[in-house]
Amino acid sequence: MTEYLQVSTAFTARQDAAYVARSATHSRLAAAAQVIGPVLSMRWQDGALVETEEWQLMLRTRVDRFDELTAYLVERHPEPNPEIVGVPIVPGTRSYLNWLDQRVTL
């Protein structure tokens, strides 16, 4: 199992995504964050296919910080059930992963 994750979620407002990116990084729950967008998203909601414009938030962290980062994101997300997923970072350059370790502190 990998020690590192790229965690993603999405916001309908750019300023919300930027705020959470800054605050999660400042809190050292993530070593880095990117706000990407706008992106066009499609999903099933209440029996209908819904199309929305969103801002993707990507964060890099360690596996041992995932639960705390998830709770942080859920608390600050305007949606009641936001999509939050972690994808293993395999492989990564040793220098980048060392940098990530130094910035994500417990």
Rank of each mutant, 00 (worst) to 15 (best):
L49T: 03
G86T: 05
A32S: 07
Q45C: 10
A13S: 14
I84N: 03
V20H: 03
Q6C: 14
A30S: 10
A71D: 15
A30E: 02
R14P: 14
A32D: 07
L5Q: 02
L57W: 04
A30M: 11
R60W: 10
T12A: 15
Y19T: 05
A24K: 09
I36Y: 08
R28S: 11
D46E: 10
E83W: 01
I36T: 14
Q6I: 09
Y19S: 04
M42W: 10
V7Y: 02
L73A: 13
E79F: 11
A32C: 14
D16C: 10
Y72N: 07
R22P: 11
L59P: 00
S41P: 03
E83S: 10
T52M: 14
A48C: 00
H26N: 11
P88H: 13
E53H: 02
Q15V: 12
V20P: 01
Y4W: 13
G47Y: 10
Q34V: 02
Y72K: 05
A30V: 04
F11V: 00
P38V: 14
P80N: 09
T9A: 09
D67S: 12
E53P: 02
T52H: 13
L29R: 02
E54R: 00
Y4I: 14
A21K: 09
V7K: 06
E79D: 10
Q45G: 11
W55F: 15
A32Q: 12
Q56E: 08
T61Y: 01
I36E: 12
V85L: 13
M58W: 08
Y4S: 11
A32P: 06
E79G: 08
N81E: 06
A17L: 01
Q56W: 01
R43F: 01
V63T: 13
W44S: 06
V50R: 11
E68V: 03
R28C: 12
D64V: 03
I84L: 03
D67K: 12
L57F: 05
E3S: 15
A31Q: 02
M42S: 12
S27M: 09
A24V: 11
Y4C: 09
D46P: 04
T25A: 15
S8A: 05
D67L: 12
E75I: 03
D64I: 04
H77M: 08
V87D: 11
R65T: 03
V35N: 09
F66W: 13
G47P: 06
L57T: 13
R28L: 12
V20C: 01
L69Y: 03
R14L: 15
R14V: 08
T12W: 08
A13H: 13
V63G: 01
E53W: 02
A33I: 08
A32T: 09
E83M: 07
A71H: 15
T61K: 01
R14Q: 15
E68M: 04
T12Y: 03
D67G: 11
A17W: 00
E79T: 08
G86W: 01
L69S: 11
E75Q: 11
T12I: 09
F66M: 11
E75N: 12
L40M: 10
A10G: 15
E51R: 01
H77T: 09
V63Y: 08
Y72M: 01
A31N: 06
